[in-house]
Amino acid sequence: MIEAKHLSKSYGGKPVVEGVSLRVEKGKMTSFIGPNGAGKSTVLSMISRLLAQDSGEVLIEGKEIGQWKSNELARKISILKQSNHINVRLTVRELVSFGRFPYSQGKLTAEDWKHVDEAIRYMDMQDMQGKYLDQLSGGQNQRAFIAMVIAQNTEYILLDEPLNNLDMKHSVQIMKVLRRLVDELGKTVVLVIHDINFASCYSDHIVALKEGKVVREGSVDEMITTEALKQIYEMDIAIQSINGNRICVYFT
């Protein structure tokens, strides 16, 4: 379990996150939603040690995040930010093999390569594994990075807006993969997501942030309601049930 207690962060005197406490349950998919500037990504960065909090603490399985050895933590939790531009020219397979660094420190064993192959297969990228990242589209790049995270084989997988800049087809593809990671491999997935309908259709648990605070959290049924969304987004959003999914209609 990941537990955040009273996290706060401010930039240049402006508070971005104020006293956020939350728990991420094991084996579930948790989505962070909320309007722009709510502090979702900041919270995710603090939970994943990319960003140091001003106050509060983050516990991974009961142990303060700073107490973990970096290397052990990298086998426990992985994070993928939304912009993954790298300066190095790598093939997909080379990138994915970096996911094994926490285990092998750069000297990959046969076991490591097995994980790499599996991750590539999982993302269905066998036919392009020899291609360089700069030859691929944005969506393919994103999938390659997710494959790397899969090869990293951590219990917790944190993603910051993984659907950013992706078209519908690739968005659905990635959400399905993430869901499979939870259902088939028992991973815990946490993501920041803008499209509340994706959050509604795929998550187990939704946390809503607004102005740096958690305003509400609960299951999809509790969160995707006109009343809850009104509180979060200050909009009247009708909910329709289509094929058993709760779909928000906010376009008009």
């Binding site: 994943s48 040690r49 990319l50 970096s70 290397n71 052990e72 933590l73 990298a74 086998r75 992985s78 994070i79 993928l80 930010k81 993954n84 531009h85 790298i86 300066n87 190095v88 970096f98 996911g99 660094f101 926490p102 420190q105 750069g106 990293q152």
Partner: peptide, 18 residues
């Protein structure tokens, strides 16, 4: 051994446990 990973940038390096 860290250099290859550092080349990926800070976020990836932290993620990979450096």
């Amino acid at each position: 051994k860290f250099l290859d990973v550092l080349a990926l940038g800070r976020e990836q390096a932290v993620n990979l446990g450096i």
